[in-house]
Structures are given as C-alpha cells and as structure tokens.
Amino acid sequence: MKFQEFTKGIIKNNAVFALALGLCPTLAITTSVENALGMSLAFAFVLISSNLIISALKRFIPQEVRIPCFIVIIASLVTAIDLFIHGYSPTLYEHLGIFLPLIVVNCIILGRAEAFASKHSVSDTFLDAAGVSVGFALAIISVSAIRELLGSGTIVIFGHEVVPAFTSSPAVVMLLPPGAFLTIGILLALLKRAKVI
C-alpha cells in the first residue's frame, strides 16, 4: 500500500482542474453547495465501489470485452444510488435531476477503471479511488461555493446560513449557465498562475 496513490488524485492530478474530465456535473449542478455535496457523495460511492469490484474481478474479466463489463458494473451501482437518493432525499433527487443517472458516463469513473483498477491490487485501488473522489469533491464544492456566494449572495447548507446574506442584489448570472463557464475558466487560470496544476 502506498499512500501517494491517495494524495496524487487530490491536487496534482485533480480530475476536473488538471485533466478536464467530468465537466458536465461540475458545471451543471454547482448552483448550490448543497447539490455539490450530494453529487460528491453519490460520485464517491460509485467510483470507489465500482473500482473495488473491477479490481477484485480483474482476473475473471476477459480483455476483449472489458469495457462493456466495466460499464455494466458502473451502471448497476448508479441504478442503486439513484433509487437510494430517490427514496431518502426527494429534494436532492430533484435538484441533481438527470445528472444522477449520468454518473454512468462520467469519464473519470471509466477512466480510473481502465487506467488503474484493472491493473492494481484492491487496496491500492481503494486509495486511488478515494483520492480521486476527494479531488472531485474539492473541485465541485469550490466551484459551487463561488457560484452560490456571488449568485445568491449567501451560502446555505441544510438550513444553516454559513455565509449570511451580504447583498440584496446578487449577480444572478452566476447561477445561469454562463456563470458556470466563467467561474471554472477564471478558477483554472488562477490555479495555472499559482502553478498549482
């Protein structure tokens, strides 16, 4: 077990900022921090459990049909989390909408399955998947915090006002699609300027 398998996915190889993967959920559901938290948890569940299963089964999956096998495993887990969230949190289900089933085609998950889980031991795979999940959560939570702060003028998480309202006329455009592109564009440029990625 190597601990660097965990840390490399958080900042240096951050899936969203450094590799520009998984952009659809990063831009679409980041209108509030609450949504981003829900998405991060659903994503982490699917990524970690699917990669553990794939890593455990790697000897039994024939090389030629590995991609369809991976997709079926991922799709089954997404169906499970889809039904779970539908049952326990209808509000979150409504907010995440179509992006919850679309975790299936999130390129980060298939990418990690193909590039890491199918070649490494189960314990290393767990560290890698956990690191990538933390990196993804970091990315979408930071994007959503900026958008909610500027677009709603406040940050509310599960009924608690984390940042109290500071303006009566927030920049609503930040909650609309252009705001999402603008936020991630400027964030990427700043990270590049600071030589983080």
């Binding site: 699609p177 252009p178 999402a180 592109f181 603008l182 564009g185 590049k192």
Partner: peptide, 23 residues
C-alpha cells in the same frame, strides 16, 4: 492572451460568452 489563460481557461471564457448569447 496572458500565459495563465492560454488553452482551456480561454476556451471556458469563450464558452461563457457564447452561453451568455444563447441566454
């Protein structure tokens, strides 16, 4: 453009302007 904006950041900002037009 400034070095930090080269590549993807500039693409995102162009997309933001396109999205603004589509609004």
């Amino acid at each position: 453009p400034p070095q930090a904006f080269q590549g993807l950041p500039l693409a995102f900002i162009s997309a933001a302007l396109l999205a603004l037009a589509f609004q």
